[in-house]
Structures are given as structure tokens and as C-alpha cells.
Design a protein around this nucleic acid. Structure first.
Length: 804
RNA sequence: GCGGGUGUGGCGGAAUUGGCAGACGCGCUAGACUUAGGAUCUAGUGUCUUCGGACGUGGGGGUUCAACUCCCUUCACCCGCACCA
């Protein structure tokens, strides 16, 4: 007899919803635990089997913590702004809001069918004006603190589509949709000054319980590097530029300088003779995307400007070139080239026959650049010094002579925070006809998206909102001044930067959340999601959180104490699941055929949570069989509790049970669900062998199973004679004494190889163990004609005899 | 190129401080029950074997009484970044 998952699962899902079983008390006396999932973008494709993996993990922890007496906050919501809805609206003329609502309903139904213990009263939706009111409010605060500003930056402009594209929408220099060419074009854009937080974002990583690989990715992304800024004057022109270098000690070897093609100085310094070449080169670069620029970078390109810079340390003339291997976006967009000690400069110098001067001994500059350690040569006052010493001395010299200064640079760039989209949070700014701009007054928030019949690109590079004239044009009622609303909207990342705060106090209309509630619940204790958000979402969210901390809104410096990335679930052929490969597994089908409990169990049993493992239909069947075994162990065919389950305890299962409690509890805590499940399987196997099972142990076991397979657990709990949900039953505890066996098996080794095993009392002394080993028949045979050199005894474990 | 990680049966994976390699599951083999079996139960299942044993955690070397675990070296694969000065 197998159990009827469809009936049981529906029954308990309804029970939980109707009884609000998982409702969180915001101000509870209990200790808090905040378990957070990365909320999904509700795509039209519906839930993927990858989604429930992370969700099940946090659900298991949440359910265990409730049973351990914690007040648990475990919410879910929707990251619902996004491109597909906009594209759908453009294609069909329908409203993105209605489309989004429909998808949310599908997602919600699917997620509820998996039996997660969310408090649905705290559901948030980033597209809800009551939610994005506060996203806009945070933007205004950032603007007021000088962290939001407008700047001319190069963007991916697609002339054919009449719109700007995000980097991820550009593939090989062409638009993802339609394959139209994309070029780099400077446009005035909203930026967020995340670089102001670079140092803190880097330093505070130390205290976080995050995977080291992920922290490293953030460190690399921030890319702190220490060096010096050196100023170069331009020969016979009253101009100068600065470069950033990590090797100021090699300044004597700087034989030329390179500016990025977009560098503002280029136009001023170019000589008439070189003008045509330079302009031609700049034009070529402009029409390349970033991707093309790096892809075609195997061969260095560049053009001489005709101008010369003066090396501040030795007065030598250095030709100034422009080349696209120097990026305007890093440092000052200009470099001093030291071809002898920098590979890129070496390559460039070789190609264009520029002089190479060795200033650090140790390499062979006829063969290539040498970037290792060595004594300085040809370097005036640095001669004979090592690298670190020379760097210090050069910086001191530069500062003394006003030619430069110590400088720290970051790879991190400010965050381009505007999209030419309709379906995003409107940026609450008004541009007035006198050239000033103001924020929308806070009492007018939320600044809602106008409903538009026909969402189409404006064609000018502005968002479709530019077409909504009534919305765009505003008049100051007091002064009569005319203004225009900002038509750019925020990128999709915005809403997800703070959603975990709103869950804490989702209905608040006066604040994004009440301070005492935030005090009660922050930080998030466990955050699980995919590794694809390792840098952007997690860095942006940390940035906003730090800002909110600075203005006193949140009480913690960091939002997420512990973070974990679940792995991917691959198709049966070990490939990524995708529609085109036809190997996508739909959770709805699995829930129908095997049940939600089976799906949850299987996904947790597949392997370690962070591993990427291929889906296996056989494995899924196996998980179902385990649940069937549990059912048969506890429930008779007639639906009554098994006759094997009795009140008395004859002690047979003591050790296995207590071991199981210990291992499952510890494994759950460490997110080692696969091994916890295997221990539960061991326990069930032992129970099947036993004649009787104490009821207490069955109850304890069902409690431990309930976080993974809550529906079947609730049903069996009911059959065990309880009338309330298992959700708040106390978590089982183990008795350390029951784990100790009086008899232990000792391994007898000769030369490190197992030759025999004996059972002895656990407190046999070292000496006695040695004696037992040497008197063992089998061992005796093996050592009779040998000399015993040494006997190693590990009490309770083994005896190893070294003899030859 | 730089950074991080992973290599264990036919497959997914276990293995506290170095202390019985292969737990648990899948698959497979044989048997039982059965009209039937993609159900259930029982036994077996790393490789080789002269049935004594020998070999075995990507390869090679080392430390140790003892190494999947520590050290050196090498190979393969995965992920991230990629002209970052």
C-alpha cells in the first residue's frame, strides 16, 4: 500500500493556509530566526525544478527552528519588474501589469503546491506602488546625500531598435533581439555612487559567513589596487594629465604615454599632422562594442597624437599615443607605459617600435617584459633598491616635488542606474525649464507609472514614458514653471536591494519598515540563492543597506549574515535544462506523479546542496519508495497505526535512534541534507528489522522527517494520535549516554593492514588491548617469524603492529 | 593569463582531530511471493584472484606505524574575471 500524496498534500496545504500556521509574530518573546530565499522573477515559463532546491533548504531550516522554539520569519515575494513583461507589452499592446499579475498567480500556485512554510501575509511585490514608493524614497535619500547623480556615460545604443540595451542584452556586438548592430554612445544617465562605499564593501566582507569563492568574486569585482597618481605635463602646451600606476618605482622606464581614445585631452593635444589619423581611429573605436573591443584585442592598435609628455622624474620627452588597450573607465584613462616591465606595454612598444628601457634587473628585455622583483637600475636615486622600498621612495619624491601622490584605485565603477524602459520604478525627479531639477516631494510618492494603451519605444533613446505627455509634463502650481518628469526608470536590481526589509513590516505606510521591527529581525540569519547573483545583486543590496545604515534606517552594517549558493539541477544528460534541449522537468508534473514531499526529499538527497547534479527519474522513484517505506512502517493497510508501534522500549533501537537525532540535527544545521536523509534511511532500515518500535522513537523520527516531507509527516502525526499540527512540536533531543556502546569493535592491523577484528569492552586499557592483539590467533600466525618493532594502540579504535 | 573549486565503484555520493575506503540511494544479479510486476521481501554487488590473498580514492613522488585526508609535483574538468595599468 502506498500513500495518497495528492489527497494528503492538498489537505495539509489547505489546513496551513486556513489556520495561518506559519504566521510570524513580529514582536515575539522567542529568539528570532530569519530565513530568506532569493525571491524569483515570475516568468511566464512557470517554476523550474531548480527553484525548489534552495526554497526547500530554507524551508527545512525554518521548520526545524520553529520546532526548536524560535520565532521564524520565512517570507516570499516577487521581483516582478523585468524585460519580458515590457517586451510582451510592446509585442501585443497589452498591459505589462496584467501580464505580471498572471505570472505571479502561476508562480504562487506552484510554490504553494510544494508546501513551503511561508507567511503569506508578508508577500511583497516590487511592482506594487505601495512597495516601490519606498524604492523611490530610498532613491530620493540617495540623491539628497549626493549618491545619485547624472553623468554622460557611454551606453549600448541600438539605432535599429531605437533604444539602449543592457550589457546582457548585447551579444557579440549585436542586439539579442533581432541581431541589430549596437554601438557605444555617450548619453546622460543616472548613476549611483557605489564607489563611495568601495572600501567598506570590501572590508566588511571579512565578517560575513559566506562562501569564500563568492567573497573573492566580490573582492575581485571591487578590485582595490594601491599605487600612485603621477602628473605629466605636455610639452609646449599648458596642459597636463595624470596617470595611475601600481609601479611608480618604474617611472624612469616610462618611455611613452597612452591615453584612452575617449580621453578629453586628446582633442586638445593632437597635432594638425596627426589629426586625421587620430579621428579615424576614434571613430573606429566608437562603433565597436566593449565586447568587440576586447575580442579583437589580440593585436594591439593605436595612433600617435603628435604630442609629447615630459617624464617628471628625468625630464625626458615621451610620445603620447592613443590606444584602446587603455580604458577610460579605469584609473584616469591614461597610463605611463613602461614597456620593459609591463607585458601590454611591451607588446605595444614592440609593434610600434617605441624605446624600451630596463629599470629593474632580473629579466631579459630582449625577450619580454619582466614584472618580477629585482634591483633597480638606470633609475637615479632608486638604483640598488628593491621593489617595495623603491615604490615608497618614489612616492615620497613625487609628493615632495608636487608631481604626484599615493593613490588607491578601484575597478568598481559607479552603478548605471537608469533604463529606457516603461516597466520599472519611475525615477522621482522633475527637470525644470530653467535647467534645475528637483525630486518629487515625498508626500507625492509613490510616483506611479501612468497606464498606457500602447507601450512603444520613443525612438529618441528615451523610455516609452516620454510618450505619456500628460504624465511627463508638469507645472509648478506656485511659480507656473514648466517641467518634465524623468522618463528613465530604475533597473531591475533596485527592488531586490531592500525587499528583505519590507517583509519585516510589509503593511507600513509611514516608513519602509518600523525601526523597532527592523531592530528585532535584522540581520537575515540565512540567505540561500543561486550563484548567478554572487556579485551584482549581493553587492548592490549591501551597498543600499550600508547607506540605509548611515542614515539611521537599519540597525546593522550588513544585511545577510550567512549566505549559501545552491547548485544547479541539470538535465539527465548532465546538461543545463533548457527548452531547446527539451530536457526541462516541470515541478507540476512531479508533484502530480510523485508528490511534493518526494520532490523535496529527492532534491535534498541528490547530493550536497552546493553541487550541480543531474536529474534522475530513477533517483526520484527511489525517494518516493523511501516515503512509502515510512508509510508502511507506521500505517497498516487498513489505515490504522502499525501494530509494531508500542509504548514500551526494549532498548534495541536506542543507539540508532539517538545517533539519528544527533546526526540529523547537526546535518540540518550545516545544510548537509543528503547525509541527514541517509541517516534517516538507516533508522528506517533498523526499524524494519526490529520486532517492535517504541512510539516515542516513531514520533521523534516523524518530527525529524517533517521539515523535509511535511505533508506525510503531518498525516502520520495525526495517526499517532495528535490533533494539532506538528509544526510547533518540540524538536527531538538525544541522550549522549545512549550513543556510547559498551562493546566496541577493535581493528587489529599488521603493518597498517586490517587482519582481524575483535569486540572488547569500551574501557579496556591500552596495555590490555596490546595483549589481546598479540594473542590473537590470526595475528600470531602473521608475526611468528617477525620481530615486533612497535605497537601502536588507539583505544576504542585499533591496534597496529609493526613487525618485519 | 589571474582568482576559486572539483577529481572516490556502472551512476549520485559518504568517510569527526590522519585510524576499518565505498555509509545511504540508484542500477545490476539471484531467489521468494505473485495471474502479473516499473509492487514487496531476502541475499549479493570496487577490481583481480592460483580463494592464501593482492590491488584500489585522476597520475607521479614524499612524510607517517597508518594518507581520500598532510606536503611537493603533474594532468583533467567546472565556475568567475579578463588589456584594471
Amino acid at each position: 500500500m502506498s500513500y495518497h500524496h495528492q489527497q494528503i498534500e492538498k489537505k495539509w496545504q489547505t489546513y496551513w493556509l486556513e489556520n495561518k500556521t506559519f504566521k510570524t509574530n513580529t514582536f515575539s518573546e522567542k529568539e528570532k530566526f530569519y530565513a530568506l530565499d532569493m525571491f524569483p522573477y515570475p516568468s511566464g515559463a512557470g517554476l523550474h525544478v531548480g527553484h525548489p532546491e534552495g526554497y526547500t533548504a530554507t524551508d527545512i531550516i525554518s521548520r526545524m527552528k520553529r520546532m526548536q522554539g524560535y520565532e521564524v520569519l520565512h517570507p516570499m515575494g516577487w521581483d516582478a519588474f523585468g524585460l519580458p513583461a515590457e517586451q510582451y507589452a510592446i509585442d501585443t499592446g497589452n498591459s505589462p501589469a496584467a501580464f505580471t499579475d498572471k505570472n505571479i498567480n502561476i508562480f504562487k500556485r506552484q510554490i504553494q503546491a510544494l508546501g513551503f512554510s511561508y507567511d503569506w501575509d508578508r508577500e511583497v511585490n516590487t511592482t506594487d506602488p505601495n512597495y516601490y514608493k519606498w524604492t523611490q524614497w530610498i532613491f530620493i535619500k540617495m540623491y539628497e546625500h549626493g549618491l545619485a547623480y547624472m553623468d554622460e556615460v557611454p551606453v549600448n545604443w541600438c539605432p535599429a531598435l531605437g533604444t539602449v540595451l543592457a550589457n546582457e542584452e548585447v551579444i557579440d556586438g549585436k542586439s539579442e533581439r533581432g541581431g541589430h548592430p549596437v554601438i557605444r554612445k555617450p548619453m546622460k544617465q543616472w548613476m549611483l555612487r557605489i564607489t563611495a562605499y568601495a572600501d567598506r564593501l570590501l572590508e566588511d566582507l571579512e565578517e560575513l559567513d559566506w562562501p569564500e569563492s563568492l567573497k573573492d568574486m566580490q573582492r575581485n569585482w571591487i578590485g582595490k589596487s594601491e599605487g600612485a597618481e603621477v602628473s605629466f605635463e605636455i610639452e609646449s602646451l599648458n596642459e597636463a594629465f595624470t596617470v595611475f600606476t601600481t609601479r611608480p618605482d618604474t617611472l624612469f622606464g616610462a618611455t611613452y604615454a597612452v591615453l584612452a581614445p575617449e580621453h578629453p585631452l586628446v582633442k586638445k593635444i593632437v597635432t594638425d599632422k596627426q589629426k586625421d589619423d587620430v579621428e579615424k581611429y576614434i571613430h573606429e573605436i566608437e562603433t565597436k562594442s566593449d565586447l568587440e573591443r576586447t575580442e579583437l584585442s589580440k593585436e594591439k592598435t593605436g595612433v600617435f597624437t603628435g604630442a609629447y609628455a615630459i617624464n617628471p622624474v628625468n625630464g625626458e620627452k615621451m610620445p603620447i599615443w592613443i590606444a584602446d588597450y587603455v580604458l577610460m573607465s579605469y584609473g584616469s584613462g591614461a597610463i605611463m607605459a613602461v614597456p620593459a616591465h609591463d607585458e601590454r606595454d611591451y607588446e605595444f612598444a614592440t609593434k610600434f617600435e617605441l624605446p624600451i628601457v630596463e629599470v629593474v634587473a632580473g629579466g631579459d628585455i630582449t625577450k619580454g617584459a619582466y614584472s618580477g622583483e629585482g634591483e633597480h637600475i638606470n633609475s637615479g636615486f632608486l638604483n640598488g633598491l628593491g621593489k617595495d622600498e623603491a615604490i615608497m621612495k618614489m612616492i615620497a619624491w613625487l609628493e615632495e616635488h608636487g608631481k604626484g601622490t599615493k593613490k588607491i584605485t578601484y575597478r568598481l565603477r559607479d552603478w548605471l542606474f537608469a533604463r529606457q524602459r516603461y516597466w520599472g520604478e519611475p525615477i522621482p525627479i522633475i527637470h525644470w525649464e530653467d535647467g534645475t531639477m528637483t525630486t518629487v516631494p515625498e508626500e507625492e510618492l509613490p510616483l506611479e507609472l501612468p497606464s498606457m494603451n500602447n507601450i512603444q519605444p520613443s525612438g529618441t533613446g528615451e523610455s516609452p514614458l516620454a510618450n505619456a505627455e500628460e504624465w511627463v509634463n508638469v507645472i509648478n502650481t506656485e511659480t507656473g514653471m514648466k517641467g518634465r518628469r524623468e522618463t528613465n526608470t530604475m533597473p531591475q536590481w533596485a527592488g531586490s536591494c531592500w525587499y528583505f526589509l519590507r517583509y519585516i513590516d510589509p503593511e507600513n505606510s509611514k516608513q519602509l519598515a518600523a525601526p523597532d521591527a527592523l531592530q528585532q529581525w535584522l540581520p537575515v540569519d540565512l540567505y540561500i540563492g543561486g550563484a548567478e547573483h554572487a556579485v551584482l545583486h549581493l553587492l548592490y543590496a549591501r551597498f543600499w543597506h550600508k547607506f540605509l545604515y548611515d542614515i539611521g534606517v537599519v540597525p546593522t552594517k550588513e544585511p545577510f549574515t550567512k549566505l549559501f549558493n545552491q547548485g544547479m539541477i541539470l538535465g539527465e544528460g548532465n546538461e543545463k535544462m533548457s527548452k531547446s534541449k527539451g530536457n526541462v522537468v516541470n515541478p507540476d508534473d512531479v508533484i502530480e506523479s510523485h508528490g511534493a514531499d518526494t520532490l523535496r526529499l529527492y532534491e535534498m538527497f541528490m547530493g550536497p546542496l552546493d553541487a550541480s547534479v543531474a536529474w534522475s527519474e530513477n533517483g526520484l522513484d527511489g525517494s518516493r519508495r523511501f516515503l512509502d517505506r515510512v508509510w508502511r512502517l507506521t500505517i497498516e493497510d487498513d489505515g490504522q497505526l502499525s501494530r509494531k508501534i508500542i509504548e514500551e522500549n526494549d532498548g534495541t533501537l536506542d543507539k540508532t535512534y539517538h545517533e539519528t537525532v544527533k546526526k540529523v540535527t547537526e546535518d540540518f544545521e550545516n545544510l548537509h541534507f543528503n547525509t541527514a536523509i541517509s541517516q534517516m534511511m538507516v533508522f528506517v532500515n533498523e526499524c524494519n528489522k526490529a520486532e517492535y518500535i517504541p512510539k516515542k522513537y516513531v514520533e521523534g523520527f516523524i518530527k525529524m522527517l517533517s521539515p523535509i516531507a511535511p505533508h506525510i509527516a503531518e498525516e502520520i502525526w495525526l495517526k499517532l494520535g495528535h490533533s494539532e499540527t506538528i509544526t510547533y512540536e518540540p524538536w527531538p533531543v538525544y541522550d549522549e549516554e545512549k550513543l556510547i556502546e559498551n562493546e566496541v569493535e577493535i581493528v587489529l592491523q599488521v603493518m597498517g593492514k586490517v587482519r582481524a577484528k575483535v569486540n572488547v569492552s569500551k574501557d579496556v586499557s591500552k596495555e590490555e588491548l596490546e595483549k589481546i592483539a598479540l594473542e590473537n590467533e590470526k595475528i600470531k600466525d602473521l608475526i611468528t617469524d617477525k620481530t615486533i618493532r612497535k605497537v601502536v594502540v588507539v583505544p576504542g579504535k585499533l591496534v597496529n603492529i609493526v613487525a618485519n
